[in-house]
Simulated assay, not measured.
Amino acid sequence: MDVFGVDIGGSGIKGAPVDLGRGEIAEERFKVLTPHPATPDAVADCVRQVVRHFGRPVGQVGVTFPGVVVGGTTRTAANVDKSWIGRDAAGLLGEQLGTPVTVLNDADAAGLAEMTHGAGRGRTGTVVVLTFGTGIGSAVFIDGRLVPNTELGHLELQGHDAETRASTRAKEDEDLSWSRWAKRVGRYLAHVEMLFSPELFVIGGGVSRKAGKFLPLIEGVSAEVVPAQLENNAGIVGAAMAASAAPSAPSSAA
């Protein structure tokens, strides 16, 4: 049976069966809009729609979540309804799908995929994977090992929550040019670099498809900065990887 990855975001919920050997989605992904309010039951129904769309037998399922996840329980909730806080997300989704579900932080999932199959493959030292979208997600790796739930998008930057200034949503909401947005991203990266001294930044999320428009404009950062190779599919692939590696139990989590 197939292993599925589903990526819950603030604006959309997307997923696909995943070819774990190649680190790629096995079919074109299917996406539905994130419900508003994005309550646990409403989101769980959307996850079920995404998985059932493919009409294939379902084995394990990995699901990303925009917040801190510990032991399958969601501890924070960014860009979704606050009723997720303290919820047994793995149990809820497992009941909806009737199969074991692994839940992990969205950026951690993207990071796992990029470190195994993408821009971070073979890299040692400290690597920071950042996903820019509705918010800013982060995954920190030290010699290939994940430090989970870092949530660096919520660092304070010039008196603001960083993702309110440098996310893709901020660019769109404020109608920022690529150059103005790149300055904000550069200041954010410099701040993260001061704290973690990474050798490499991997920039993911949907905006990674347009890396040529802003990465050359980023200044003030010593570390290498590269676009994610799996682009916006990294979360789906990483979620499936985590599900495949987890014990086969409904409450298993990465």
Rank of each mutant, 00 (worst) to 15 (best):
P35A: 07
G159D: 07
V128H: 06
D41T: 11
T126S: 03
L157Y: 09
V61H: 05
Q60T: 13
R56E: 13
D45H: 14
V58D: 07
A113C: 06
R22Q: 13
P57G: 11
A162D: 05
T73C: 14
E27G: 05
F54A: 06
A107D: 00
D88R: 09
F132S: 04
R52C: 14
G98K: 07
A107F: 02
A38T: 01
M115E: 02
G94T: 10
L92T: 01
A162T: 02
I142P: 01
P57S: 11
G118F: 03
A162Y: 03
E114P: 00
P57M: 11
W84Q: 10
T124H: 12
D108E: 08
G23E: 00
V128G: 06
H117F: 15
S83T: 15
A38M: 04
G118W: 04
T64L: 05
E95R: 15
P66K: 08
V103C: 09
T74R: 07
G72Q: 04
T99V: 14
L130C: 10
G23A: 01
G98P: 06
T34R: 01
L157C: 06
E151I: 09
T150E: 10
G71R: 08
G122V: 04
G133K: 01
T150M: 14
I85V: 15
P100G: 08
G137K: 03
E27H: 13
V68M: 13
D108L: 04
K82S: 15
T134D: 03
T131K: 03
E28V: 11
